[in-house]
Write a protein that binds this DNA or RNA. Structure first.
Lengths: 229, 229
DNA sequence: TTTACAGGTGTAAAAATTACACTTAATAGC
DNA sequence: GCTATTAAGTGTAATTTTTACACCTGTAAA
């Protein structure tokens, strides 16, 4: 027990709200806790920040360890410092939210023994700690953010159709959008590159595939832009 | 030295970016550090979070102690967890941003021995730690936020003229706004209550005074509204 | 060959935003 | 007390943006 301090110190954790889009629904990745407290309850992936690790690095590492995810969009959300968040002792949690391409990653758990699963955001079970509140805030942030920055790209496969894109936005915003107006505005941003390919999968008319132009996106992001639907 | 842990633990602080509006300019409150590190440098007001205190409570307490401010708008901004932020040891800082009515409060320092002063946001001196980055982020947040929520009210006296309001927005956004259009949009929000009073101070035509309708504001805030200028 | 189904496209009406200039009420200086 | 100065206050027309809306196309399955 080598580390002693004059005053009590809180433990520091990160928790990640990982969103994915699949089967037309917005989903969130949860893990089932193997230990007390809240044993067997579903919770957000997360864990302790190591002494020589930045907060961002801790969030990335935990995601990698618990879910096998890497190369994902990650952004700090909010820091939760309620006194009795954790029944054991005082724990401060820096919450992150992440967006992943479901298609790129394994269906559910990856490495750890812990069970992991995707839940539709409207159908999550009772969560451990204050994780329900963290999830609520993350959803609010995602819904707000998506109107300013087309972060939705992070949730779609690298090649996608406009219909897929619209379905994603409708799932996140929870309302229907006009097809023609949606396409008009989206293409007007000049961020999509039409490919010479068409989706073949479905048994219907093939749809043109697009990819996202990261260069133009970053240029626009620096200047700030509006993407209101 | 009674508190011992198996692993090293970071210290936890709060830092506050306090904005005020005065003499037509957006200002930020800084204190001069009395001790090392960065002795005599200007820094954001802040300090350690106590073991039984929420983060919000710590921010309010520090503001009260260091600047005498109370009853102010306060919002969590971001958490800074760089490894070498503080040369002494690892310190995690939860940054807040605050908006205060300059007229309601003392010109500068209030209680502590430390010197405190307001600086125009474009003319801040070199700051201690990573406080320049925190300030930069707070400014960005304020500029973004003010376009969605009329938080500017928090910076003005309780009774104000439309010209004062416009000057505040111009100072924050850093560009001139059209007087007629500004008034049209602002009054269309139906959040201002015209008073039967007129400003007498200046040596010119008296301007009508308004106050802010908190009830309508809260109702609108719940639904979400846009205030684009 | 027909049917089912998502893909794809343009225009007109309505609403919001922008640009713009003069009169008014008070004080200060002569 | 007359004049100059200063900010207060006010409306409309042009432009731009947003919204609402319906039919034809291409493929696969029946």
């Amino acid at each position: 027990m080598p580390f002693t301090y004059q005053y009590r110190r809180a433990a520091l954790t990160v928790d990640c709200v990982v969103f994915g889009f699949d089967e037309g629904a917005l989903k969130v990745l949860l893990i089932r806790r193997g230990i007390e407290p809240y044993q067997n309850r579903w919770a957000l992936p997360g864990g302790f920040v190591r002494p020589d690790e930045t907060l961002d690095a801790a969030a990335l590492r935990e995601l990698q360890e618990e879910t096998g995810l890497s190369e994902i969009y990650l952004e700090q959300l909010y820091t939760f410092g309620g006194i009795d968040r954790d029944p054991r002792e005082r724990v401060i949690s820096v919450a992150y939210f992440a967006l992943v391409r479901r298609a790129d990653h394994l269906p559910a758990a990856a490495t750890d023994a812990a069970e992991a699963a995707w839940f539709e955001v409207e159908k999550v079970p009772s969560l451990a700690f204050d994780h329900a509140e963290i999830l609520r805030l993350a959803l609010e942030r995602l819904r707000g953010k998506i109107r300013w920055q087309p972060v939705g790209f992070e949730l779609l496969p690298r090649k996608f159709t406009l219909t897929q894109f619209q379905a994603l936005y409708e799932a996140i915003l929870g309302r229907e959008l006009d097809k023609r107006n949606f396409r008009k505005k989206l293409l007007a941003l000049d961020l999509l590159v039409p490919l010479e390919e068409f989706s073949t999968a479905a048994s219907r008319r093939p749809a043109q595939l697009f990819r996202f132009d990261h260069r133009k996106y970053q240029a626009l992001t620096r200047k700030g832009f509006i993407f209101d639907l």
